[in-house]
């Protein structure tokens, strides 16, 4: 192990000789060592990726083609091969399994659009509001980053307490303090659960958007704004004509990363709804698959659902990157 983590040091004199003899042609990168050096540098990363990501993933894909239930769990090799059977069960939207998967998928789509959209909006608003120096700016910046720094489960558990019907802060605020009419509603069961999980996820995610956008804004030179102000541009117009285009590289990455995190979110429903009672309105897809696998011991269909989820994410991501690249070429 240790032999691979520390790549051997190349003999420097030969390196220099080779570099000077070859020189750099047309911006081609110079070789600082033997052809194997980059591979040696990558080797530890590749090893761990294979061990933890790739091989288990390949195994998971294989599982999606076999009928892995409790009877075969002890001896996977004996599980019968069912071809695309697990997939057709998952995608048969007339059956109970397919219908609930579809419901979960739609819930997740709505969840993702709302959470990513609103988080981005809040992050942008905060970043712009704190763009110019004023007294107390550092305080706000520090404060806004706290939800991001708090361990995920600690933040979600706090919200779970706040969403309790009779003893929670949310109902107390809405009905006792603000005097909303009617009875205090449930937040963690029934349809309100969707709202609850969206709020929690935004609370957790928006500081990240804020952080990235704030970092991005620091590279926008102040004099650009001043020049456009002289031209009579209003703040909103400045934002759309200067800020937004300058932040494009950040936004391209930010939106993608937030999309992937939110769509795959497992922790929020797991901690918020507990491991036994999940309302259909908050049945996010990762959590749905987890339950389909572990609660009913039906790992074959669970794996098939995961592979479908992965394919969906791959397609969306590729389309997104294609779209983004084409636009940047045109621009």
């Amino acid at each position: 192990m240790s032999a691979t983590t520390v790549p051997p040091q190349p003999d420097s004199s030969t390196v220099t000789k080779r570099v000077t003899s070859r020189g750099s042609k047309n911006g081609q990168h110079r070789r600082l060592g033997g052809w194997w050096l980059p591979y040696a540098l990558l080797a530890p990363a590749i090893l761990f990726e294979l061990l933890i990501h790739i091989v288990p993933m390949a195994t998971g894909v294989w599982v999606s083609f076999i009928k892995l239930t409790q009877i075969y769990l002890r001896n996977w090799g004996a599980a019968p091969f069912v071809g695309l059977g697990n997939y057709s069960v998952s995608l048969d939207f007339n059956s109970a399994i397919g219908k609930s998967l579809l419901n979960s998928f739609l819930v997740t789509c709505g969840f993702t659009v709302l959470v990513v959209g609103i988080s981005w909006g809040l992050g942008m608003a905060a970043a712009v509001a704190l763009q110019r120096a004023f007294r107390g700016r550092g305080l706000f910046r520090t404060l806004f980053l706290i939800p991001y720094a708090i361990p995920i489960y600690a933040g979600i558990i706090t919200w779970k307490f706040m969403f309790q019907k009779d003893t929670g802060a949310v109902n107390h605020l809405l009905f006792d303090n603000l005097g909303l009419p009617g009875d205090k509603p449930f937040w963690l069961i029934g349809d309100n659960a969707f709202l609850a999980i969206v709020i929690v996820a935004i609370w957790r995610l928006w500081p990240f958007a804020f952080l990235m956008l704030m970092a991005g804004l620091q590279s926008v030179p102040q004099d650009v704004y001043e020049a456009s102000a002289v031209d009579g541009a209003k703040p909103l117009r400045q934002w759309s004509s200067i800020t937004l285009p300058m932040l494009r590289p950040v936004n391209v990455v930010l939106v993608l990363v937030m999309f992937l995190w939110t769509f795959n979110d497992f922790n929020t429903p797991f901690v918020l709804f507990g491991s036994t009672a999940q309302p259909p309105a908050g049945d996010l897809i990762s959590f749905h698959i987890y339950n389909a696998s572990f609660l009913t011991w039906n790992f074959g269909t669970g794996a098939a659902m995961s592979v479908l989820l992965l394919l969906f994410l791959l397609v969306v991501t590729s389309a997104y990157l294609l779209f983004v690249n084409r636009r940047s070429k045109r621009a």
Partner: peptide, 17 residues
């Protein structure tokens, strides 16, 4: 692209490995 892998899918295989 490993960032896209749903954790649920490789949890059990990883355990087995």
């Amino acid at each position: 692209s490993t960032q896209m892998f749903p954790g649920v899918l490789f949890l059990l295989p990883l355990f087995l490995i």
